[in-house]
């Protein structure tokens, strides 16, 4: 299944102020892998999942979009997301990455590397409430 394409939200613009789960404020470009992991540990509802990029291809609907196929979590569930080519994902141990980092840097001024097959991105799921 392909999810609804997200637009390019304002919080990815360089300098945007992000609040971590413990209340600490950081700029979007300064976020580290640990910030997401620690915030998820504090959260009662959300947990971090590893989403490995399995495939990246151009969208059939528009050249501005790409379809990124992920393998999510321990069950390796296949999830496809249609996003703007400049939409940034956070790669474990690496930072912000997009299908077209030049455009991301141009539009958002957010330092960004090229998203590639095999990259492991941070994603969220609901905590299993037993």
């Amino acid at each position: 299944s392909t999810m609804v394409p997200p637009s390019l939200p304002p919080y990815f613009i360089k300098g945007s102020i992000i609040q971590l789960a413990d209340g600490e404020l950081k700029r979007v470009e300064d976020l580290k892998t640990e910030d997401f992991i620690q915030s998820a540990e504090i959260s009662s509802e959300l947990k971090i999942d590893s989403s490995t990029v399995e495939r990246i291809e151009g969208s059939h609907t528009s050249p501005n979009f790409a379809v990124v196929q992920f393998s999510v979590g321990e069950h390796r569930t296949q999830v496809s997301v249609e996003v703007l080519v400049e939409y940034p994902f956070f790669v474990f141990g690496q930072g912000w990455s997009s299908c077209c980092p030049d455009r991301t840097t141009q539009l958002l001024e957010l330092p960004c590397t090229k998203l590639s097959v095999g990259d492991v991105c941070i994603s969220l799921t609901l905590k299993n409430l037993r």
Partner: peptide, 19 residues
């Protein structure tokens, strides 16, 4: 200045699981 919560930056990839 707007402040955004950390989780808004992370895509919510919620696979439907039967188990």
């Amino acid at each position: 200045v707007p402040v955004f919560p950390w989780h808004s930056l992370v895509p919510f990839l919620a696979p439907t699981q039967s188990d």
